[in-house]
Design a protein around this nucleic acid. Structure first.
Lengths: 129, 129
DNA sequence: TAACTGTATTAATATATGTAATACAGTTGT
DNA sequence: ACAACTGTATTACATATATTAATACAGTTA
């Protein structure tokens, strides 16, 4: 399904969260699609089930997935704009990064291009104009 | 000078790096201006000098400051576009965040606005058109 | 020389991360 | 009902990282 860098200083569960978000965002994992079970994925990646669970719990708290005891974990039909808190965090993070990028020499048009580039990839299906 | 959240899960030295970057980027700390000494700042913030040093070392490795033994640490006259490696990292991070932001419901025009907003604050003096 | 700078090292401690083993509860298909 | 699967929780242990502490060395400055 994907690969992890076990030697990275970045915690495994964080890598997992990032990768799964990526798959969900890029529509590789579709709404209501079942994710691998905690134990199955742990076996595939040869890491501990608890670590998977930690990642899933984090994804659930961010409303990317939902879990049902006995059934499994599934991709959430994400309510756009519902997660106001997450969205504000996101904006703050973006501002910081943008300021830093401008400082390092990127131009505003460089940044515009970056947005368009990403928007093309994700299909633009998420914009609410 | 600034405040830290000692209870945060984010390491103190990382908070320090972020805050100091912010001050440098927003021109509060100017080129060649002397930063507080390791020991002074440690005393002001009531944290350990080693923690300050760790932050300063990180800032130095990212070319935001330079340090001279016996004299002090100073804001660097940052060579724009020089730090190619940092810039690529930056772009990758930005792409991830942008994809996530679009997914969470932000529109491309929301993101454009965000860029303009930040650009106004930092004065636009860093764009290389 | 005294008092300041950055830098380095070693040790002790606390917290975070990951593994391991085990248990409990809900679902599904036989 | 049962077996085999799901998520979830707990406890313990090992390891890595973060932080403090004490101390030392080297360069600068008045």
């Amino acid at each position: 399904m994907f690969e992890l860098d076990l030697r990275s200083r970045k915690p495994i569960y964080e890598q997992l969260v990032d990768k799964l978000k990526e798959l969900i965002i890029n529509d590789v994992l579709r709404v209501d699609e079942k994710l691998p079970s905690v134990r199955t994925l742990a076996q595939q990646l040869t890491i501990n089930p608890n670590t998977i669970q930690k990642a899933y719990r984090e994804l659930e708290s961010q409303a990317y997935i939902y879990s049902i005891k006995g059934k499994g974990s599934f991709v959430n039909a994400l309510a756009k704009n519902e997660n106001v808190e997450e969205l504000e965090k996101m904006k703050d993070e973006l501002k910081k990064l943008i300021a830093e990028a401008l400082f390092l020499g990127l131009s505003t048009s460089d940044l515009y291009s970056l947005i368009d580039e990403v928007d093309d990839v994700v299909g633009g299906g998420y914009t609410n104009d």
